[in-house]
């Protein structure tokens, strides 16, 4: 098992999984926009070209695969209603997953989006499971990863 540490985010990568944490650190770009810190984890080989919320990667998933995103929003999001939930989501439940939560709806897949604030940083946790029917079987792997997730 390897560990990713970047931009104040740390997580254990299970064997056979792949992952990355960008060095964005909410840098201010020339056009005034900010570059977000994004963590990607997948139980399958991640393509080099993929969107922040997994476009280009989720299409490669089979029914046993998992894809996880931790996307950081800017400091102006802290304190807003969308990010009112405090603390890192852990111990996710099967009933929290819904096909309508997917950014890109693909047959069989299901997803979850949770917005939260932790240590004055605003995040969205986005999880895609390869099978809605088998979501309860896949969840222990997701929760194991979340147990190891640390945010400074």
């Amino acid at each position: 098992m390897s560990r990713l540490d970047q931009s104040g985010i740390g997580v254990e990568v299970p064997p056979g999984w792949e992952g990355s944490i960008s060095a964005g650190g909410l840098q201010l770009l020339a056009d005034g926009a900010s570059e977000a810190t994004v963590m990607h984890l997948g139980s399958f080989p991640l393509p080099v070209e993929r969107g922040s919320f997994g476009s280009g990667a989720v299409e490669l998933m089979n029914h046993q695969d998992i894809f996880m995103v931790l996307f950081e929003y800017g400091p102006d999001s802290v304190g807003t209603a969308l990010f009112a939930e405090e603390g890192i989501p852990r111990n996710l439940q099967a009933r929290q997953f819904d096909r309508n939560m997917l950014q890109r709806a693909l047959p069989g897949q299901t997803g979850l989006q949770q917005f939260f604030t932790y240590r004055e940083r605003a995040f969205c946790l986005y999880v895609v499971l390869g099978s809605h029917i088998d979501r309860a079987d896949l969840l222990p792997r997701v929760n194991s990863v979340l147990d190891s997730l640390e945010i400074q």
Partner: peptide
Amino acid sequence: MTTLSGVDLAGGSVSMSLDHGRG
């Protein structure tokens, strides 16, 4: 080693697997 850890060109932290069971 079957887990390759390093950084990408943007300075991000990266972990890749060689025993992912596919290809």
